[in-house]
Amino acid sequence: MKYTVAALASLATMVSAHGNITSPLGRIAGAAMAAACGQAAVDAVNIDGTIPLENIQPATADCNLFLCRGATFDDNVDRVQTFTAGQVVDFTAILPIPHEGPCNVSVVDTTTNSVIGDPLIEFESYADEALAQLPANNTAFSVTIPQLAAGQCAVAGQCVLQWFWFGTGAQQTYESCIDFVVA
């Protein structure tokens, strides 16, 4: 079988990893995401868990890639974590292909897809591919769970910790979401 250089480059781009949170456990793609986004979108995420949003092709208008990369709570009810206000939560990221740009972790209300309060951590410049080595805090960092209003993030599926990174040069967006409740 013969492949052109362009075909091989295209294939490498499709399977290359870019970035994802590996700890704490984040949302994964499943049947509910397939119903909202199509099986091809689920397959793309499952083949490359670090795929940028721009490389996922949703099959329906019901697919909201900008909320947890389309992954739904219904596929992740067994992954909900319980945190307390003031608790420090350690994150681990993999960044095999860095793309410099801003990044943050925020508490997001999943009903409105809006950030609650200020970001828990922010990087003005994250995953800068021009650096010989990435700063250690790009792949291992911590956030502190804030004191929220009574009833906020008390019900599973209501809130996520969302890691959001936008590679400005690559024009690519990455998201990971951790479902949680505040005890």
Rank of each mutant, 00 (worst) to 15 (best):
V108Q: 00
A36N: 15
Q87P: 10
F83A: 08
K2A: 06
A150S: 13
D43A: 14
L131M: 13
A71P: 02
M14K: 15
F66K: 14
Q172V: 12
M14N: 14
G101T: 14
P102Y: 01
L65F: 05
I47C: 09
D128F: 05
G169F: 15
G86A: 11
I28N: 03
V143C: 08
L65K: 01
N104W: 00
V88L: 07
T60E: 05
P58L: 15
E100Q: 14
A9Y: 08
A130P: 06
N46F: 08
N113P: 00
D118R: 04
N46T: 12
C153W: 05
T84H: 11
P135D: 12
L120D: 02
I56Y: 12
L95D: 05
G101C: 11
S142P: 05
P135C: 08
F66P: 00
Y126E: 06
Y3D: 00
L131Q: 12
E122D: 04
M1N: 00
I51P: 12
N76F: 03
T144A: 09
D118L: 12
T139N: 09
S16W: 03
L11A: 12
F164A: 02
P58D: 14
N113I: 01
V105N: 07
Q147M: 04
G101E: 13
V15R: 15
C37V: 13
T110Q: 11
G38E: 10
A140Y: 01
A156F: 04
T13R: 14
T50E: 15
A127Q: 06
A127K: 06
S176K: 01
Q133K: 13
A41T: 09
M33Y: 14
A29R: 12
T111I: 04
V5G: 03
G151C: 08
G70V: 12
M14V: 14
D118G: 03
D62K: 15
C177A: 06
A31P: 11
G101M: 08
G117Y: 02
V155G: 03
P96T: 14
G169R: 08
D118H: 03
D90C: 03
T50Y: 07
D74W: 00
N104R: 05
I28Y: 04
Q57T: 13
Q57V: 13
T110D: 10
P119S: 07
N55F: 13
D43H: 04
G117K: 03
Q158W: 10
L131K: 11
D90S: 11
G151D: 06
T111Q: 10
A149M: 01
Y174Q: 11
Q172F: 09
Q147C: 01
D179T: 06
S114W: 00
V108H: 01
E124G: 11
V108I: 09
T168P: 09
M1L: 02
A93I: 01
Y126A: 08
M33V: 15
F180L: 08
A12G: 04
D48P: 03
T92M: 09
A17I: 03
A7V: 05
Q152C: 01
P102D: 03
E100L: 13
P58M: 15
V115Q: 07
V42Q: 12
A44V: 12
A130N: 12
I28W: 03
D75S: 06
V45D: 09
C68L: 06
E122M: 12
G26Q: 02
Y126K: 08
A9K: 13
W163Q: 02
F166G: 00
N138P: 02
F73I: 10
D43K: 04
N138C: 06
